[in-house]
Design a binder for these strands. Structure first.
Lengths: 344, 344
DNA sequence: CCGATTGTTGAAAACGTGTGCAACCATGAG
DNA sequence: CTCATGGTTGCACACGTTTTCAACAATCGG
């Protein structure tokens, strides 16, 4: 009794509930006067249609499921914010679920979305298990992946052009005069790490610099991993004059270690990150990095999903470009070091 | 036909759909053998119950609505992560909606949640409009607010004890020997700004220090506001030897200005923040701040909501305590300055 | 052997909405 | 005046569940 239904309105207006339904949908099948009267009554009674009941008959819920590793990741939060913006503008509500990169939780989430009959799914997880993918694809619902690590065939995706962006970042260092440039990657096996590493090598190659395996170390995508990796790099003799990091979090760790060891940035060593998290402009020194258009990527992913929901088939993958943001963590190498290599 | 229903299973198992429903609920009303057979068939057919249909009859959706100003705010993201964790553990799915502090969007969100028949609502918005509150309370659904600015009577809430935490933060500075301590607040009118300011004054009073109005300036809760405020403080003669900031974002701006002006932290001026965002431990120097147990607050809010949903009436407000995290942005004042005031 | 009890099953209504179809009424044309 | 037409409206079913109630069969006690 607390919530008013279409039938309650019908009773008051002395019409059938069908007429009420039509009136509230501005159907031309109902006369203007009665329609107006019904709408007025509905408003007075504080009527709110039940999306539940409507979904049951229309077989569309106007909801989408968003699964992320964790919303506490600032990169992901920005993307989700973009998703939510256009979803909401189009009358869709978003279910948010964290997977915590835990396989058990992942399948729980998929089942949940399935039972809730979401119209579509967006995935912003750093790693999507194969088994997980199977479950996802089984629910016969459009899926859009964002920066997915395992490029699948069955789903659409929005991806950043890692190779080009990384090449540009590395070329920036080369152009400053650096010759001994290190790369701190993510854990092995990640698609985006592989691609960013490829961009790094491409830049080296184009500049005619020989690739030196000892300058490549791996972190874990987080500051802790960046710290361990940087320790190893600084122990080298001679150490690199510049470091390209897999992402800003890694760079944060590297930066901290440099400071602890009394290595000045950028005077003694240059540092480049990737992502352009909010934090990147507030480090000391502010971090040169590759900007990923995070919100924009979220928006585009949702727009793509909307197209799929409308039945229009769209391009399989949307590529977006990163942008080099030059701040204060990069500078030319010290004179003596810059010329050491060419001479040898 | 793509999705299999309870009736499809009934047809295959040659029983009524009622029996299927009971079998899947492990009801004692159905014999073990047939129940087991039905469950096997259901599994084979890949059956997933429709939460939609179930909700329609049970009048419970097992969903909650979470409204935030923006999920891109790292503080909020942490809280939401805590909410989602316990919600999911209890079979609840969460609808996420950003209000962007825009009144129009706020009421759109409320209507959306209402039509979706969410079982409860959580609000983590820095400011909730009065009109907005009206709409919220009209839907006769349990509501829990987190750090709400306008303490309302109709809703439950989880709040941090701003006054005590701020007093502790300020006392830390006093204990280090500071006498000329500034406060950079948020915009006027915010409840939490008022409370944190009160804690600051309380500490001053207890230490027998006279309150100096020119040492209180206002930012906007973001780095930009912190920068403007810090500029004003550094223009004072003499400038303060320590600054207590409304939050870490504000402190970030203050820190940047100090650096730009060649004022060393903490040698020339000490800085304290509030929130303990992830970033706080990666600034240079790492920031002394008050830690808010963000995830924990989200969890507790959800637990509180669960209690309300069960019909147990719980305490109106849960208070949580902040924790002083001492890092490297605070130190005793320089000798000459420390003794300037006592002498005068 | 019969009535009562227990265990198992199906029929049907309900939740709130959308919609095809039939029915009704008024109007205009012939 | 009759018939066709077009504009409004109501009836009834459907969506996929849960749940009450009645019905049925088997078993048990007397």
């Amino acid at each position: 009794m607390s919530t008013v239904s279409i039938k309650d309105i019908a009773r008051v207006a002395k019409v059938s509930h069908s007429t009420v339904s039509r009136a509230l949908h501005n159907s031309p099948l109902v006369s203007w006067e009665t329609a107006e009267r019904i709408r007025r009554i509905a408003k007075e009674m504080g009527y709110r249609p039940s999306a539940i009941a409507r979904s049951l008959v229309t077989r569309k819920t106007k909801t989408i499921g968003v699964v992320v590793t964790t919303i506490a990741d600032p990169f992901i939060a920005e993307v989700v914010s973009g998703i939510e913006e256009v979803a909401n503008d189009h009358g869709y509500s978003v279910f948010l679920a964290n997977s915590n990169a835990d396989p058990d939780r992942e399948i729980k989430v998929v089942h949940s979305f399935h039972e809730r009959r979401v119209d579509g799914i967006l995935v912003t997880a750093s790693r999507v298990g194969a088994l997980y993918m199977d479950h996802l694809s089984q629910m016969k619902v459009p899926i859009v992946l964002i920066n997915n690590q395992h490029p699948g065939e069955f789903a659409h995706s929005v991806m950043i052009d890692n190779v080009t962006a990384s090449r540009v970042a590395t070329e920036h260092l080369i152009q400053l005069g650096h010759r001994r440039i290190a790369y701190i990657g993510d854990q092995f096996g990640y698609q985006s790490d592989t691609e960013r590493f490829a961009g790094y090598r491409q830049a080296l190659e184009r500049a005619g610099l020989t690739f030196q395996p000892e300058l490549v170390v791996h972190g874990d995508g987080k500051p802790e991993g960046g710290m361990r990796a940087m320790e190893r790099l600084l122990a080298l003799a001679p150490p690199p004059t510049a470091v390209f990091c897999y992402n800003d979090m890694t760079a944060l760790g590297a930066l901290r270690v440099a400071r602890m060891r009394g290595v000045r940035v950028p005077e003694d060593i240059s540092l480049v990150g990737f992502d352009d998290l909010f934090i990147a402009s507030y480090t000391e020194p502010p971090l040169t990095t590759i900007r990923q258009p995070k919100r924009q990527m979220g928006r585009q992913a949702m727009v793509l999903l909307l197209q799929l929901l409308k039945g229009e088939d769209s391009q399989q993958t949307i590529w977006v470009q990163g942008e080099l943001i030059i701040r204060a963590s990069t500078a030319p190498p010290r004179k003596e070091e810059a010329y050491v290599r060419p001479r040898s």
